[in-house]
Design a protein around this nucleic acid. Structure first.
Length: 422
RNA sequence: GUGGCCAUAGCUCAAUAGGCAGAGCAUCUGGUUGUGGCCCAGAAGGUUGCGGGUUCAAGCCCCACUGGCCACCCCA
C-alpha cells in the first residue's frame, strides 16, 4: 500500500479548523503591521541557497532537496524563505520602495532531516522580513509581529530568547576569544564539539554535552565583545522591549544555524510539544542582500513553524473557531420530489445559504439521521403531499418543531432564520 | 546520518506460556405507513506494516526492509 513519503503528512479535514484559524491570524496581524504578502516559487537555483544560507551550515550541507531538471538546471526545493524573498526583492528593484519594505509569506518548506514529532521534511512557515532600515525599532517591530500573533492565538507566558551575535566587524574578535577559551579545554571536548571548535565555534555554545556545561558558564559572552555599533543597537532594542513590556531573556548561548545572521537573533520557545520546542526564530541579516548581488540593504526577519504552533495550541487545549458548515438539508421523499429538491438546494446556495441534498432516495428516518450528523439547523422535507399543496415542511432540528411553508417562500424563510443562527 | 522503543479493523486498544484474530467508538441497515439524537439488534470492515526464516502450528520467536516515536544532531 502506498503511504505518504517519510517526513511528509496529509493535512486532513479534521485539522483544517486549526490551519484556517492560524493562517487567518497571520494575515490579520500582518495587515496591522503594514506587511505585504509575497509568494515566491517553491524552488530556486541551488546556488542561491548555497550563497544565501551559507556553505558549512547543516541546511546546505545535508538537508537540501536538490535535483537537476530536464534542462539540466540545478534546482532546490526551498529550505527556508529568506533567500528566495531576497532574490525577488533584488530582481524587482524593491529597494526603491519606501523603507522599510515589509514582506510576509506563508507556504511549504523542505528539509531532508530525520523526522520526529514537530519535525518534518515538508513543513510550513509563516515568514516575515523587513528590509532597508537599521533602526532597532524595526527589530522591535518584527518581534512584535511574532508576539502579537502568538498572543492572539492564545499563548500565555511568552518569552523571547534574545542575543546579539555581532557584525562583520566584531564577530571575528568574539570568535577568536571563544576559540582561545575552548582550546585550553580541548581534551575535555567530544568529537562533535572538537569539530565545531574548528569549523563553527559559535555552535559550541549550543552543545548539550554534560562535560561541556560547566565550561559554557564561564565562556566569553558575545555581549561583552560587541563593537560600539552593535552594543548600542542591542541596548536600543532592549529599551524598546522594556517599554512595551515584552519579556525576554538574554541568552548568550543562542546561536542560529544560518550564516547570514548579524546583531539581533531571537527565538520563541513553546513547552510541551516535545524536543522541537522552537516555534519561532529569526534575526537580523544586514549583509545578505549585498551578498546576493543587490544594493547594501539591512534586513531582519523571522520564521514561524505552523505545524509546531498548531501542536502547541492543541497541547494547551486552545480550540479554533469551527469552520462554516451547511445549515440546511433538503430531503426529498419519492421520485417526484427529487427534481424540486435539487432546484431548491441550488437556490439556497445561490442565496448564500449552505445546503445539502439527501442522496440515494433513502427513508425519511435515515435522511433525518444524516441531517443530524451533518449538524444542520433545518431540514426541508419535500414529499408527494407537499408537492400537491405547493408547500414544504421545515423541521427545526434543535427543537423538533415543524412548520409548513409555501414552496416559493422557503429561501426567504430560511434566510431570515439561518443568518440569525450563524 | 547514528542508536533505542514501537507497528493488530477507519480510530483507541485486547488476544493467557507459539494453538480458530476480538472489543469499544466510527460507518451502514433494521426495530411496521413520512420523522434524527437515547436504547436494542444486525451487517460490513483484517493477507496482524512489507518480505523472508524457524515450527506440526507464528499477531506472538529470528532476520531484513518501510514507517512512526524518542535520543543524538539540528532547527521551525
Amino acid at each position: 500500500m502506498y503511504q505518504a513519503v517519510k517526513g511528509t503528512q496529509d493535512i486532513l479535514p479534521a485539522d483544517r479548523a486549526y490551519w484556517r484559524y492560524v493562517t487567518e491570524q497571520m494575515h490579520a496581524v500582518s495587515a496591522l503591521f503594514g506587511l505585504q504578502q509575497i509568494d515566491t516559487p517553491i524552488f530556486e537555483e541551488t546556488s542561491l541557497f548555497v550563497r544565501g544560507v551559507g556553505e558549512g551550515t547543516d541546511i546546505v550541507d545535508k538537508e537540501m532537496y536538490s535535483f537537476q531538471d530536464k534542462g539540466g538546471d540545478d534546482l532546490t526545493l526551498r529550505p527556508e524563505f529568506t533567500a528566495g524573498v531576497m532574490r525577488a526583492f533584488i530582481e524587482h528593484g524593491m529597494h526603491v520602495l519606501p523603507r522599510p519594505v515589509k514582506l510576509y509569506s506563508i507556504g511549504p518548506i523542505f528539509r531532508h532531516e530525520a523526522p520526529q514529532a514537530g519535525r518534518y521534511r515538508q513543513f510550513h512557515q509563516f515568514n516575515v522580513e523587513m528590509l532597508g532600515e537599521m533602526d532597532p525599532a524595526v527589530d522591535l517591530d518584527v518581534m512584535s509581529v511574532a508576539w502579537m500573533l502568538l498572543t492572539r492565538l492564545g499563548y500565555r507566558g511568552l518569552n523571547f530568547q534574545l542575543n546579539s551575535t555581532g557584525c562583520r566587524k566584531c564577530r571575528p574578535g568574539y570568535r577568536a576569544a571563544l576559540v582561545d577559551y575552548f582550546k585550553a579545554y580541548e581534551d575535555r571536548l567530544g568529537d562533535v564539539d572538537r569539530r565545531r571548535l574548528a569549523i563553527n565555534p559559535l555552535r559550541l555554545l549550543d552543545s548539550k554535552e554534560p562535560a561541556v556545561q560547566p565550561l559554557l558558564d564561564a565562556a566569553p559572552h558575545s555581549a561583552d565583545h560587541l563593537c560600539d555599533e552593535c552594543a548600542t543597537h542591542l541596548a536600543g532594542l532592549r529599551g524598546y522591549l522594556a517599554a512595551l513590556g515584552m519579556p525576554y531573556t538574554i541568552n548568550f548561548r543562542l546561536v542560529r544555524g544560518l550564516d547570514y545572521y548579524t546583531k539581533t537573533v531571537f527565538e520563541v520557545w513553546a513547552e510541551g510539544i516535545g524536543s522541537q520546542s522552537a516555534v519561532c526564530g529569526g534575526g537580523r541579516y544586514d549583509g545578505l542582500v549585498e551578498e546576493l548581488g543587490g544594493p547594501p540593504t539591512p534586513g531582519i526577519g523571522f520564521a514561524m513553524g505552523i505545524e509546531r504552533v498548531i501542536a502547541s495550541l492543541k497541547q494547551q487545549g486552545i480550540t479554533p473557531p469551527a469552520l462554516a458548515e451547511p445549515r440546511v438539508q433538503v430531503s426529498p421523499l419519492g421520485e417526484a420530489a427529487r427534481l424540486p429538491a435539487i432546484r431548491l438546494v441550488n437556490d439556497l446556495r445561490a442565496a448564500e445559504i449552505g445546503a445539502l441534498l439527501a442522496f440515494g432516495g433513502r427513508s425519511l428516518k435515515s435522511q433525518l439521521k444524516s441531517a443530524d450528523k451533518a449538524g444542520v439547523a433545518y431540514t426541508v422535507i419535500l414529499g408527494d403531499t407537499e408537492l400537491a399543496n405547493g408547500v414544504a415542511v421545515v423541521r427545526d432540528m434543535a427543537s423538533s418543531q415543524q412548520e409548513t411553508v409555501a414552496a416559493d417562500g422557503i429561501v426567504d424563510w430560511l434566510r431570515a432564520r439561518v443568518i440569525r443562527n450563524t
